[in-house]
């Protein structure tokens, strides 16, 4: 810009259709670039600034999102994903987004998000008995996931599935139990024939799954019930380039292999395995 001139600024309302279009595109972009945790939906647009650029306009947005029940690897379209309710201990995301609008087309140039669960006090306000989110590295959580995955593989006639990440966990007081959700991926081993799981490798054409399980403590033992949904295989795609936009809705981190990116518009899950109840 010439000295003494400030860039042209355009006032836009947060609920303006143009702002919403930009925000929804940003949310789609986020969901197609995260590989951990859950997909998010747009909840509120906090702020919008529009500046003139030599080749178009620059949009700077602050948006609030809410976690859905669809895992990031789940190809279900976002419109079909349910928002995680307050009673399930909701999680919100706060994102700073920048987009360019050139020739009427938006493109995302920068995204930075952080996510945080609702406070325990807020959950208690709507439900006294609702279990709160538990740390994913809690020994009871890890044990429940291991038991559930072992139970699933024991009943599975196909590939051996490996843990990708633990995505959610809740400790339930009565009956004493642990509810967990985790992502899995198919390997080149056959589930019934595995001797050393460490020697199994993820398939080149990735096949992910998402499991929900409950491990209930009983006198003299425990029961585990697990249901896994295995998604359609995903074609091999190149890894993201290092100079690409910085994107992420930080979710819970697990000790697992990082999956490769998946296209955002894959067809809905085509295969459901389970429930396997042991």
């Amino acid at each position: 810009l010439p000295n003494g001139l400030s860039p042209a600024y355009r006032q836009l309302n947060c609920d303006d259709p143009e702002t919403e279009q930009a925000a929804l595109l940003a949310v789609d972009y986020i969901n197609s670039h995260i590989h951990q945790g859950y997909k998010h939906v747009l909840n509120q647009i906090d702020k919008v600034q529009v500046w003139a650029q030599p080749t178009g306009e620059s949009f700077k947005l602050e948006i609030d999102t809410l976690e859905t029940t669809c895992h990031a690897l789940d190809p279900t379209p976002l419109a079909n994903c349910s928002v995680r309710q307050l009673t399930q201990h909701a999680v919100e995301g706060d994102c700073d987004v920048r987009l360019l609008k050139q020739n009427g087309q938006f493109s995302v140039s920068f995204v930075k998000c952080k996510s945080s669960p609702d406070s325990a006090e807020d959950v208690r306000k709507v439900c006294l008995d609702c279990p709160l989110l538990a740390p994913l590295n809690d020994t009871r959580v890890v044990h429940a996931v291991e038991a559930a995955l072992a139970a699933f593989n024991a009943q599975n006639n196909g590939s051996y599935f490996q843990l990708v990440e633990i995505s959610r966990a809740q400790l339930v007081p009565l009956p004493v139990s642990v509810h967990v959700e985790f992502a899995v991926a198919a390997t080149d081993c056959v589930a019934k024939e595995v001797i050393d799981p460490a020697k199994c490798n993820l398939l080149a054409e990735k096949q992910y799954g998402f499991c929900k399980a409950t491990l209930t403590e009983k006198v003299g033992g425990e029961d585990v019930a697990v249901t896994c949904t295995v998604f359609q295989t995903q074609p091999v795609v190149p890894l993201p380039q290092p100079d690409g936009p910085d994107v992420g809705v930080p979710g819970p981190v697990a000790d697992a292999a990082t999956p490769e990116p998946s296209p955002a518009d894959l067809p809905v899950a085509s295969l459901v395995v389970g429930p396997v109840v042991v």
Partner: peptide, 27 residues
């Protein structure tokens, strides 16, 4: 016709540009 400039301004809808509407719930 009598104009009441003071009251006319107060009677109109207040447009708050930001933040926008909450689609689900606020936490």
């Amino acid at each position: 016709k009598v104009a009441h400039p003071n009251t006319a301004a107060a009677a109109g809808p207040v447009v708050r540009p930001c933040p926008g509407r909450i689609r689900y719930f606020k936490i």
